[in-house]
Structures are given as structure tokens and as C-alpha cells.
Amino acid sequence: MIIVPEKAIGELISPSECLAAVEQVFASMARRSAYNFPVIREAIGYQDALYGFKSGFDRDGPTLGLKAGGFWPHNMAKGITNHQSSVFLFDADTGRCRAIVGGNLLTALRTAAASSLSIRYLARTDAKVIGIIGAGHQSAFQLRAALGQRKFERVVGWNVEPDMLKRVADVAAEAGLPFEPVSLDQLGAVADVIITITSSFNAILKADQVRPGTHIACMGTDTKGKQEVEAALVAKATVFTDEIAQSVTIGECQHAISAGLIKDSQITEIGQVIIGKHPGRSSADEITLFDGTGVGLQDLAVASAVVDLAIAKGAAIEVEF
């Protein structure tokens, strides 16, 4: 069995390699060669933690496995990240455990890859201003990945705690772009692309704050009850997602579905756009929305790529198991 520890991940895989792995698995899902198993996600009643499992099988890999972990909101006070997870990969031919891979950085990279893919396939080609709602740990990964998809000229951001926006400003500065903290009204008025990456349980962005032609990547809603944008905004947009089953139950679309504003038949898997079965954006004035719920197959695809790279670079730790 191979072990790839958390500390080794950053040296092994690049954001572009993560994006390629996620793009491939979304395509496999669209071709029905890969599927996710039902998600288990529970509040465990201890340390205010959310814990669960995401798993699946990609026949094209073949890749079989699961990610176990969750969110411990008090971890920052202990000097460790709030999100903690590990990925377990199994040999699809025998069922034996093939590898254990640290899942924290991997989760951040694959989440950013998914939103940047949505920008690549759905945002207007002339998009110039990108807006970020949320300034937590994941926001830096989101912005770095997104900036490679269009020739952005400006970054704007909003966060409930404005001081935290320095994280977003620093990434913009790395790319040589100006950054401006703005109100939600201002952000919606100027942004061509908006990424929401919060842990909110109440709608932050409203339908009347978003102008025609905007692409929105909703990346924070992955649990029943969470919500980043108004249900009316979801209903106003052409909606895409990683997986429809998760979108309507634990994703951003859960609220528009429960309110009867949209039907699941109105949601398209982004994999269908990737493989050319759906045209994606149909006009310059269309509002497109990607509901990124985070599927287990994303984690497995990137973890499998990490294991292959670790073997190729001689960085794999092999143990008898």
C-alpha cells in the first residue's frame, strides 16, 4: 500500500494537473462511465463538527475509493485548518487498499479546479472583472485558479469581516491586478464573474444585485441548509452543476427546488458541456450559475493523479498492509 502524506501533496501536483484530472472525471460522469455513491454527512454532536464520507467509482480509471473527513470549526484556535480529510483508494480489480492520501490541500485544489472549469466553459470570453464573496482559506485557491481562465483586469471582493479580504488582495497582487473591497451591490454591478465561497446558511447575493451576462460559481454550499445566493437568483439563471443529485439535496439548488422555482430537469451537468453534448452559455446576456457541490469523484481523480506522480517521482511511501 502507498501512503502520500499531506505535507507532500503541494510538491507533487500542480493546479493545472488538478484541473485536468477534474475535467476528465466530469467527462466520465457525463458519459455515465463514473458515478458517485450517496453522501454521508452528519453533525456528530462533538466539537461542533461535521463529518462524513464521499465515494464513487470511475470505470475509465479505473478509480475506486472514498474521502473521509469534514469540518471542525474550532481547529484554527489549535493551529490547524478547519477542514480535515483523508482519501482512501482501492484496487478496483481486487478490492485491496491501494493508497492513503492526505486530503486537505487536495480538497482545496479540486474545489478551485471545479469553479475554474465552470469559468472556462460558461463565462463570457470578454470577462474582465472577477468578484469574490468570502475570504476564508479556500478563497485564495479559488482566485488563483480562476485567473488563468480569462484575461481578467480587476478583482473586487466582499466578506462579512472586511479585514480578511487581505487574503484575496494578496492573490490579486501576485497576479499584478488591482483589488478593491466593495459592497455586494457594487460587486454585482461590475463583476463579469462571481465566485461565492462561504459557509453561509443565509442567502448573501440577491437576484437584483446581479447583472445580465454574469457567470456565478457557487462553491460553498455542500450541506443541507447552507445557502449563498437567493433562490430567485438560481431561478433566474441557467444552472449547471457537478452532479444533479447532490445539487438538489445539499447544493445551492436545494432551496430553489424546495420552493418550486426550478425542477431538477432544468439543471445540467457541466460534464455535458465538456463532452460537447450541451452548448453551455447561449448568449452574452444570459446569467449562468455553476452549483459546485463537491463530488467524491473529484477527490478520487486528484488523489489517483497524486499517487501516480508520487510513484513516478520516487516520493511514494510503501508499506505492507
Rank of each mutant, 00 (worst) to 15 (best):
T238V: 14
D126Y: 00
N104E: 14
V129A: 01
V129E: 05
G251C: 04
D299T: 03
K78V: 00
G213Y: 03
V156A: 10
S247A: 15
R98V: 02
V39S: 04
V25E: 13
A189C: 08
T63F: 07
E6K: 09
A123Q: 03
T94P: 04
E42H: 08
K206S: 06
D163G: 12
D93E: 12
V155I: 09
T221N: 12
G260H: 15
C253W: 05
A316P: 04
I132S: 00
V190W: 03
F26N: 08
A34D: 07
E318C: 01
H83W: 14
D192F: 11
F290G: 06
I250W: 04
G134I: 05
G45Y: 00
I317P: 00
V307A: 14
G213D: 07
G296H: 06
R150F: 01
F201A: 13
V234F: 09
P212K: 11
Q227D: 09
I257E: 11
Q138R: 07
E320K: 11
F57W: 12
S16L: 11
S283I: 06
V273D: 04
L300S: 10
D48W: 00
A217S: 13
S86F: 11
E161F: 13
I257M: 15
G225V: 00
F179E: 01
D126E: 08
S283M: 06
A43R: 15
K151H: 14
L147F: 06
A172L: 09
E269W: 00
D222F: 10
H215P: 09
E6Y: 07
Q298A: 05
A301V: 09
I132T: 07
F201S: 14
M219G: 03
I250G: 01
G69Q: 02
E320N: 10
S304N: 15
A301L: 06
I317A: 02
T94W: 04
D91M: 08
D185T: 14
K54L: 07
I119L: 06
D58W: 04
W72F: 13
S28P: 02
R32M: 11
E320G: 06
V182S: 10
E230Y: 03
G56M: 05
E228H: 13
A135Y: 02
I267W: 07
K313G: 04
R59W: 02
F88Y: 13
I9T: 01
T238P: 02
R154P: 00
K226A: 11
I195P: 12
S14L: 09
E243I: 12
M76S: 15
L50G: 01
E228D: 15
C218L: 14
T238L: 03
G61K: 04
S200F: 12
A27S: 12
N202T: 15
L177G: 01
G131L: 05
T81K: 01
F141V: 05
P15Y: 03
L147P: 04
G220V: 10
G276Q: 11
A173D: 14
A305Q: 11
H215R: 05
R98F: 01
E23A: 11
L187I: 11
M76D: 15
A312G: 00
E17N: 10
A315T: 00
G102Q: 08
L143A: 01
K67G: 03
I195Y: 13
I44P: 03
A21R: 07
D299Q: 10
L66G: 00
Q138H: 07
F240E: 05
I262G: 05
T63R: 15
